[in-house]
Amino acid sequence: MILDGEALEVIIKHYVLYDHQCRRSILVFVAVSGLATLVLALLVVFGKLPALFLFTISTGFSFGASFVMPIVLAFVIQREKSEGSFRALRALPISSETLFLGTVLAGVIASILAFLPLYVIATIVLTLRGGDVAHLQIGVGWATLLISFLSASFTLTLALCVNSPTVLSYLTAGFLALAMWSGILVQKLRPVLENRLEKLFYFMLSLEGQILATVILIMLSVMILYVGSRIFSRKKSYV
């Protein structure tokens, strides 16, 4: 694998800073989620809402950012392929591995930029309030980072390796369906596995559980990246 640090940085900036669609999406997400979190935070500060409510909403926004931003970037990639500018990217002096990894990292960084402001607001307020949710909030931040990495690896591997624009529509629909079915599944399994689910929940909150989850998510992401990078560098056509 041939990687160029400077070129990686340029690719990341190209998508996160210079591409209008990506930049606008980050700003809109930050504005909407940040404002909503700020309002909820103020309500929590003045005792109008429980801290758990702020925690739940901010966690939803954070996890949302980790899925949404890579999908936005995937649509940017598909747009570049259809308008032809991806050809220019491929013709530039960048190795295919650098282009691949730079794009995935851009997805991760876009997610971080999108969720960071709301996370900071929520963390400050929840920390000041104290209690169990404050501890959980730190775990949420780390989990969001890991999920961003996994989500960006998977989504952008698909966007880079598959030339069909419809794959992203299926991917988006797939994520939505997954979220919906996960919720339904948990509801259905809850009466049957309530004790086990509770044990799993507390295990995941423990240090051992977090380490295990971190290792699994990182290994999964690295595996996807490795396979994706090999596929991308051997593609017969980039247009």
Binding site: H14, Y18, D19, E83, S85, A88, A91, P93, S95
Partner: peptide, 25 residues
Amino acid sequence: EVAIKQRVGFFLEEAPLFRQMRASD
């Protein structure tokens, strides 16, 4: 590939250059 392409300039048909970016960028 990278070392070679640094010594090569290219102009692709219809100049497909990142439409969403400013020319300076």
